[in-house]
């Protein structure tokens, strides 16, 4: 039994006016092992973020089920923690107070939660910034706060929704290396969403390649590259081969989603009779 099981999960959004429904996710099957780092890559609109919301149980699937340790997930819980693309920090709280949030919501005593928060703030290298407010930090630093906040609740699974998507290219690569360092310490199960193929290969034990509308699993690619992985891995011939293989899978998807959008946009151009 895999640690996290996604069993035939579908998600449809009903459209009451046209009595149809839009299928965002179509029968996704995926098992994630304990301590595994899985990345999900796909064109925009393939429902990869929705899949993460279903695992977090911030949203319910219209078909199938998500199970953690064999038990269906019903609502958000401390066993899963999210890291968001927009950081989602609370601007009126300091770094320390932001990291304490998850523990505070669980009514942990202030001294206790402060000690835990400090430990994770140190882990992401922000020890000197405890009293700073989010607006005083750079994007990369803000996301480190987001990661510390997620880790502080001691989750079994870390769910990361394009966490480095708002950062510039250089910071992104450094953050990826740092994330791997943190992961290699305690080997949490990580599901990491991205649309960046390089990032997906660099981080993953397995890359899940998804198709667009409806979102389906196109292929699951195990990444057989040595760890720890240095930044220079990106020039390794093996890495390049993975990149090409995934790009070939996605190229058709991206093109078809472009065509689909183009014809959709063109629709209002047809004169009404």
């Amino acid at each position: 039994m895999a640690h996290l099981e996604i069993d035939h999960v579908s998600l449809a959004y009903p459209n009451a006016r046209e009595k149809t429904s839009f299928l965002a996710l179509d029968a996704i099957d995926l098992g994630v092992e304990r301590g595994e780092f899985v990345t999900i890559v796909g064109p925009s609109g393939c429902g990869k973020s929705s899949l993460l919301m279903l695992i977090a149980a911030l949203q319910q699937p219209t078909g199938g089920s998500v199970r953690l340790n064999g038990k269906p997930v019903a609502k958000p819980g401390p066993d899963r923690a999210l890291v968001f693309q927009d950081f989602a920090l609370l601007p009126w709280r300091t770094v320390l107070q932001n990291v304490e949030l998850g523990l505070e919501l669980r009514h942990m005593a202030p001294d206790e939660r402060r000690a835990i928060a400090r430990k994770y703030i140190a882990m992401v290298g922000l020890r000197d910034f405890e009293r700073h407010f989010p607006h005083q930090l750079s994007g990369g630093m803000r996301q480190r706060v987001g990661i510390a906040r997620a880790l502080s609740v001691g989750p079994e699974v870390l769910l990361m929704d394009e966490p480095f998507g708002a950062l510039d290219a250089q910071i992104r690569q450094v953050m990826a290396v740092e994330l791997l360092k943190i992961w290699e310490r305690d080997r949490k199960t990580i599901v990491f969403i991205t649309h960046d193929i390089d990032e997906a290969v660099f981080l993953a034990d397995r890359v899940i390649v998804m198709s667009a509308s409806p979102g389906r699993v196109l292929e699951i690619i195990p990444v057989d590259l040595p760890r720890p992985r240095p930044l220079t891995l990106r020039n390794h011939p093996g890495f390049v081969a993975y990149r090409e293989r995934i790009w070939n899978l996605l190229e058709d998807e991206v093109r078809s989603s472009l065509n689909w959008q183009a014809s959709d946009d063109a629709a209002p151009m047809v004169p009404a009779l």
Binding site: A56, P76, A81, L82, D86, F87, A88, L105
Partner: peptide, 15 residues
């Protein structure tokens, strides 16, 4: 995002 952050940690409606 503020609501999403708080809810993602399992906050109840009052929280």
């Amino acid at each position: 995002p503020w609501l999403r952050a708080v809810r993602s940690f399992g906050a109840g409606q009052l929280q």
